[in-house]
Design a protein around this nucleic acid. Structure first.
Length: 267
DNA sequence: AATAACACCTGTGTGC
DNA sequence: TGCACACAGGTGTTAT
């Protein structure tokens, strides 16, 4: 996912360079890559930004919107590097390099928007960025008011807060001692305060770790950095709780694997 | 309106 | 070894 380090690396690699060509080998991503995506050719990338998990490449003519889906990745390579399987898109730059989009599952997206991104339907209804002050206990409490569904599903709802995926939702709920199935509207403010802090902490740590991986992004290797981080519950169903030693439970919630400690996560 | 289920797609690991 | 199946970091769309 394009968390902060990846955006930063992409920024350093593609801005402020002129785009000399766009090669689309396979346009069938989540949505077909539009013809208008070619409008980036001849434009200078002024800035690279991130909103939620969308990467935004700004030019004077419009903004390229990139999403990595479940399996996408971006790399900056010498233009001569041969394309491999699932290398669907190349953004060729005048600096002799190429921003290459690879995505085996093709859940990702490569779009073009000529209006401010707030007008784009994919970005219009997104909740606050978790690492900004806009995401806070007051905001979360208000957003969860009256919600009957499980707190974990709400954390993964982009209208409430963006950027909290399955790993982080599991980990943050464990850290805050909240049961993933707790009715969202009934989690008290005290707990939500802890939860907000833990989400910020865990995401910040993940970004830090992701940076380690992304620093050598020109190497062929590399799983996302946050895989290297210490995970307390994610992927550990049936193993023992790092806090109390009890066996971790694993259930499905919204078709996503959910791991928790039934002793440590009670509310 | 809110919630749950489904859809998209390929790769990998497990069990028979 | 082959095959069937479950599951994977996401999220918009459709059904209930």
């Amino acid at each position: 996912m394009p968390e902060l380090p990846e955006v930063e690396v992409t920024r350093l690699g593609v801005a402020p360079y002129l785009v000399s060509n766009l090669i689309v080998r396979n346009p069938s991503l989540r949505w077909p890559v539009p013809e208008t995506a070619r409008n980036i050719i001849g434009q200078t990338i002024r800035a690279v930004r991130r909103r939620a998990k969308y990467l935004l490449l700004d030019t004077d003519a419009g903004t390229c919107i990139v999403h990595l889906g479940m399996s996408g990745s971006l790399r900056i390579l010498p233009r001569s590097t041969p394309a491999e399987k699932h290398d669907h898109i190349d953004l060729e730059l005048e600096n002799g390099r190429v921003l290459r989009f690879n995505d085996p599952r093709r859940f990702g997206a490569w779009l073009w928007c000529e209006l401010p991104e707030t007008a784009h339907p994919l970005l219009a209804k997104l909740g606050p960025e978790p690492l900004t002050d806009a995401f806070n206990v007051e905001q979360l409490h208000a957003a969860l008011k009256g919600k009957k569904k499980a707190i974990k599903l709400c954390l993964m709802d982009n209208a409430i807060v963006v950027g909290v995926g399955n790993i982080y939702a599991n980990e943050a709920l464990f850290a805050a001692g909240i049961h993933p199935q707790a009715e969202a509207g009934k989690v008290d403010k005290e707990r939500l305060t802890v939860l907000v802090a833990e989400i910020k902490l865990i995401l910040a740590q993940a970004i830090k770790q992701g940076g380690t991986t992304l620093k050598d992004f020109t190497n062929a290797e590399g799983k996302p950095g946050y895989f290297a981080q210490k995970l307390h519950v994610y992927g550990r169903g049936g193993e023992t709780c790092t806090q109390c030693g009890h066996m971790l439970s694993e259930i499905r919630l919204g078709q996503r694997s959910t791991v928790f400690c039934s002793l440590c996560q009670t509310r």
